[in-house]
């Protein structure tokens, strides 16, 4: 699988993501600079975590209008898988590639801890290696992860099986609507989530529960 990680000024999880992708896919991912206007030929584009542009204006707002974004939108239109983690999720929402917005955590605090995620839909390109309803461990680290959207969009997301992951067992760390941790676009090839599966892939991380997420994409594009 050919993968790439987009790096914005203020991204800080690109190394974790590059390492995870190489570990799981067996091939070296490309690092893509935000100022580029074209993407290499890829099966998976990842927008990683961090604090792009210092979270100025709104989290992800400036990065979402960056030079590389039209190329990512075009790739998504072609069916290329796009994964946004944490700040990457915020950027995808701000760019309109996913609906809704990530607001300030309801508790106002930056949360950096482990949560439990429940697979709300195992029939997606990003979750197919999990079982429906499976609960897995994953770290979160964010100040703005409180997913919000209008009632109509929420109803559509739920009705169309586009909520891929939820915070399980009372571990919602941010006040997210319906405990939403990760959502899909309409076509199912763009996925955004606040938690960090790339930090749960080898025994050194304490668990390997995040591997299946990347292995799902690997299987989907094979």
């Amino acid at each position: 699988m050919k993968s790439g990680v987009v790096v914005f000024p203020g991204s800080n999880r690109e190394r974790d993501m590059l390492r995870a992708l190489e570990n799981i896919t067996g091939s070296k991912p490309a690092a893509i600079w935000h100022a580029d206007t074209e993407l290499p030929d890829l099966d998976l584009v990842v927008l990683c975590g961090g604090f792009s542009y210092g979270d100025y204006l709104r989290t992800g707002a400036i990065a979402a209008r960056g030079n590389i974004m039209p190329a990512i939108a075009k790739a998504a239109d072609r069916g290329v898988r796009v994964l946004g983690i944490c700040n990457g999720f915020q950027i995808l929402c701000e760019a309109g590639l996913l609906p809704g917005v990530l607001m300030r955590n309801a508790g106002l605090k930056f949360v950096c801890k482990e949560v439990k995620l429940e697979v709300a839909n195992a029939d997606t390109d990003f979750t197919r290696k999990y079982k429906q309803g499976q609960v897995w461990r994953c770290p979160v680290a964010h100040g703005d992860g409180n997913y919000f959207t209008d009632a109509e969009t929420l109803k559509r997301l739920e009705g169309e099986g586009r909520v891929g992951l939820r915070y399980a067992e009372g571990t919602n760390p941010n006040g997210s609507l319906n405990d939403i941790a990760g959502i899909l676009n309409e076509r199912g090839n763009v996925f955004g989530m606040m938690p960090h599966p790339e930090n749960m892939i080898e025994p050194l991380n304490g668990a390997t529960d995040g591997r299946a997420l990347f292995e799902s994409v690997l299987e989907a594009v094979a």
């Binding site: 709104r58 209008r65 809704g100 917005v101 919000f148």
Partner: peptide, 9 residues
């Protein structure tokens, strides 16, 4: 519309 406000919220 394009930048200063996020009209979702």
């Amino acid at each position: 519309k394009k930048l200063l406000a996020n009209t979702v919220i």
